[in-house]
């Protein structure tokens, strides 16, 4: 389980997260929605220890992430797959080597086992046959799929997606959404998906949380989200910011 309690994070004078309390239950897919620049990615990076909160608690499987020593943090990260917004593939490496990176880090896997797992991960995201290609030779959607393969190759317990469908056409967005659902069902992973694409959020999430002005404004199932009368949430869902004006 992932638990955030009273998390605060500021960059200089700009307070991005004011007081974030959120729980991600084992096995669920939680979509975190919110306007651009509200700190959704910051939230994700605090979970994996890439950013340290100024205050509050971030726990993964009971371990207080900011307090972990380097070796413990790396041990925890082996249980977490992270899918970056623009894939963040290593551009000097082939697709195979990109997906194999996390597996090689484990240190105990034989080369043929690594090859088997890379092939398996690429087949899951329907990218088999692209092993020898370089990231520059792939489309945006293909890069995201390889990024997903890299994240799942180590068989993590948690998958964190940072805007996985941003910049993709509607068809490719649907393909990525289906892959997210497939990973949740087949691998039984707990997923946190940062997005501002409401169609995606309703399609993939068990619960939806909205981040607004540094706090979690709303958490609920897709049905509850669709039915809420909270003007901020409604304004975001319907693309009508005027609804949120005047809301506390």
């Amino acid at each position: 389980m992932i638990e955030l309690r009273g998390v605060r994070k500021a960059f200089g004078r700009k307070v991005v997260l004011e007081d974030v309390t959120l729980e991600v239950r084992d096995g669920e897919t939680l979509a975190v929605i919110g306007y651009s620049g509200v700190g959704k990615s910051v939230l994700l990076k605090t979970i994996v220890g890439l950013l340290h909160p100024d205050a509050g608690s971030v726990r993964v499987d009971g371990a207080e992430v900011p307090a972990l020593r380097r070796a413990e943090l790396y041990e925890l990260r082996r249980r977490i797959g992270y899918v970056f917004q623009f894939a963040a593939l290593f551009d000097s490496m082939t697709v195979f080597d990109n997906v194999a990176m996390g597996l090689r880090r484990i240190g105990t896997l034989a080369p043929d086992e690594i090859e088997r797992r890379v092939t398996d991960a690429l087949e899951r995201v329907e990218m088999a046959g692209y092993e020898a290609r370089y990231p520059a030779e792939l489309s945006g959607g293909q890069r995201k799929r390889v990024g997903l393969a890299r994240a799942v190759a180590t068989r993590p317990k948690y998958l964190l997606y940072d805007e996985p469908t941003t910049g993709l056409d509607p068809v490719t967005t649907t393909v990525i959404d289906r892959l997210i659902q497939k990973m949740a069902e087949e691998l039984k992973v707990t997923s946190v998906v940062i997005t501002h694409d409401m169609t995606s959020a309703f399609r993939i999430a068990d619960r939806i949380a909205m981040l607004y002005h540094g706090r979690i404004r709303f958490v609920g199932t897709p049905e509850e989200t669709g039915a809420t009368m909270d003007p901020v949430v409604r304004g975001f869902i319907e693309g009508r910011p005027e609804l949120a004006q005047g809301a506390a």
Partner: peptide, 17 residues
């Protein structure tokens, strides 16, 4: 380039120092 394209963050998430 690795920093601004989050490749260094990606290394960290894959448990590389």
């Amino acid at each position: 380039t690795m920093r601004v394209t989050e490749q260094i963050d990606a290394l960290e998430t894959l448990a590389y120092d």
